[in-house]
Design a protein around this nucleic acid. Structure first.
Lengths: 142, 142
DNA sequence: CGATCGTTTTATACTGATTATTATTCGATA
DNA sequence: TATCGAATAATAATCAGTATAAAACGATCG
């Protein structure tokens, strides 16, 4: 699955991004390899096509893509460890923007349906659910 | 909410942990301040009672507490950024141990119930749900 | 009481991910 | 072709977390 220059140009225009060769290659590297990738692995892939590219450029552009919704961040948490003294079953509401975490109560998961979707052997004995969205403050800022 | 030495001793014994003054103070600092805290902020709090304590001790003990279930980790993800090119609505299944992420399909969330629990102003227009558990491989290792 | 041994803590060095900085390059436009 | 702003490259700096090794502690045994 390789995008034509034309396709990427359209996509970038739609999100208000200037088109550069580096951007195109970085974006294609993410799309081409399905799954969840680290900046380093994307960097490695991109270097096969642009050996002179800088790691900073990869980081810059990944962040740009995430910000304008072209990509999704798979680690939307704060980058540092957070610890919770509450070990009763409860779930978390996480703000995708500011990474704040609030506890949330309630039975809003259909575990029957969920377990039908689980890959074989996945253990959900102590399920923790995290729901990502935008907290009021960040929503107001937009 | 301050634990007596006696209470902490029991708790530690139940989890097979030796009791030290530092451990007690670290644990109390987490419990006393409700919410989700970084090791640095816990370090700051603990230093008010044990000025000579080392940051490494705080990290060591937090990790211990997490391992034996006394505390819960709120950033169970890989510590590095991961990026997902799939921006169609889908959810994630995350292994709490090895931090691997798989996509998961299906409508297993009761959004009516969920939205009743949401704090005012929280925006769920692009909900992303992450379900934490133990993947088959890590479960086998135990 | 004093020696001993394993554990815990401390101090500090180190690693790895990410960000910041700054100079250079690129590309569009005048 | 000259100019200007944006993007990139190179590299330094930062920050969280981990590893290591020495010192301190504490229980136990003789």
């Amino acid at each position: 699955m390789r995008l034509t220059h034309e396709q990427f140009r359209e996509l970038a225009a739609k999100h208000g991004l200037a088109v550069t060769h580096q951007r195109q290659v970085v974006y294609e590297a993410v799309i081409a390899s399905h799954g969840h990738h680290s900046p380093e692995s994307i960097y490695a892939a991109v270097r096969r096509r642009i050996p002179s590219i800088s790691l900073a450029t990869v980081y810059n552009n990944l962040r740009l893509f995430i910000e304008c919704g072209l990509l999704r961040e798979v680690t939307p948490h704060a980058s540092t460890l957070r610890v919770d003294g509450n070990i009763k079953p409860h779930h978390h509401l996480v703000c995708s923007r500011c990474k704040s975490v609030q506890d949330i109560e309630g039975e809003f998961i259909d575990f029957n349906r969920l377990s039908r979707q689980l890959p074989d052997g996945f253990d959900l004995t102590q399920p923790l659910i995290e729901v990502f969205g935008l907290c009021r403050r960040c929503r107001a800022k937009t």
